[in-house]
Design a protein around this nucleic acid. Structure first.
Lengths: 199, 199
DNA sequence: CGATTCCTTGAGCAACCTCAAAAGCGGTGG
DNA sequence: CCACCGCTTTTGAGGTTGCTCAAGGAATCG
């Protein structure tokens, strides 16, 4: 019910290498058989399937997060996963059993912090939610590739028209600046200057 | 900045037994030294401390969830924890290292599902959010002890006046019924009848 | 370059918020 | 036991933010 899904299953032959995906690409669906991954780059959107059968935003995974670990318990994914930006996944666990166990504890702690971040993106004034997402997704150098308006809307529980208005306002205020490479627009790429944010 | 906090640190001598807490009781604060626990009963509220120094709702832990596992990594808690209802915690991990590792994986999977649940509580129409929380907290027999209005408001990102209006409406519609024991009101206890919910 | 999807912008409206006041509930101490 | 105090909950009236519906423009893909 959300986003475009050019969906093809992950190939068995790829299980040992790192995989790259384009924005909008469906990675897997709830119930599919598969394995666990670590997100190396980009943003993965995880959706729950409602009783009514349509897909609603459930959570986000960004660089460092582990996704699909439930496959180790049930053999199948519980969420639908799609790439929101260009992204890269590598198989998990990556080392031996001991390394996996340490990384599990770390992942659990990280998952709990991530949950709090997500919750924060769905509360308060509309502008602050969008800025929160920008902050979450921006790299250290003040660069960010935003998801599509509709995906931002799903994440923040706002309407895409509202997101559009807010992002335009932030551009006019100098907080966001569309990035161009060789004179051509980098799709949804922005330079971020939070200090330009009016009180 | 939220809720009343009759705060006293957890005693060392209690580390091996299960502990019980009254609603409103502060369990620990971010930065405190302490250990990890499994929630046996009730609802624990976890708050992040903002840069401005005040506490904002971050997430919920209910029966079966593991809280404070980050102490095994950093030696200190990252969230402030308070009991929203009468609740009971027992030390975690409960068995040997092998059992802990299996339970970790399970906990990670559960934490991710819990995150999606929380996210769902902060989107959509006000009534549906409150009903979502009621469903999350109700036991199998259609009984629930709700947190205070202000806490429900913090969880759902609504105002406590709005929560009050919604709960009264649900009572009048027969979805919620205040529970009395020996003719005396069971504090914030309700019987739930979701089938009485109008479309 | 034609079609489809995504984004922008406007006008009016509804859901929820804000501010305010009063009633209920629980403890505490006379 | 009752009067009092603080805190929570209820209820009302009016205001604001973000939603809905609608239309046109920009991007992207074949």
């Amino acid at each position: 019910m959300n986003s475009s899904n050019t969906f093809t299953p992950i190939k068995l032959s790829d299980l040992r290498r790192s995989l790259a995906f384009e924005p909008g690409k469906g990675l897997w669906r709830s119930g599919d058989a598969g394995r666990a991954w670590r997100v190396r780059q980009g943003v993965v959107r995880l959706d729950s399937t409602t009783s009514a059968g349509h897909s609603v935003f459930g959570s986000l995974a960004i660089a460092g997060d582990i996704v699909g670990c439930e496959t180790l318990l049930f053999g199948a994914y519980t969420f639908n996963a799609t790439a929101l930006t260009q992204c890269e996944l590598s198989p998990w666990p990556e080392g031996d059993a001991a390394a996996a166990s340490a990384s599990l504890l770390e992942s659990l702690a990280k998952a709990q912090r991530r949950a709090a971040d997500l919750v924060a993106l769905r509360g308060g004034q509309a502008v602050d939610r969008v800025l929160g997402l920008v902050r979450l997704l921006a790299d250290g150098a003040g660069r960010v590739v935003l998801p599509a308006r509709q995906d931002i809307a799903d994440i923040t529980d706002l309407r895409f028209e509202t997101i559009s208005r807010i992002i335009k306002t932030l551009e006019r205020a100098g907080v966001l600046a569309a990035v161009h490479i060789d004179g051509v627009r980098a799709s949804r790429g922005y330079a971020v200057d939070l200090s330009a944010m009016p009180a």
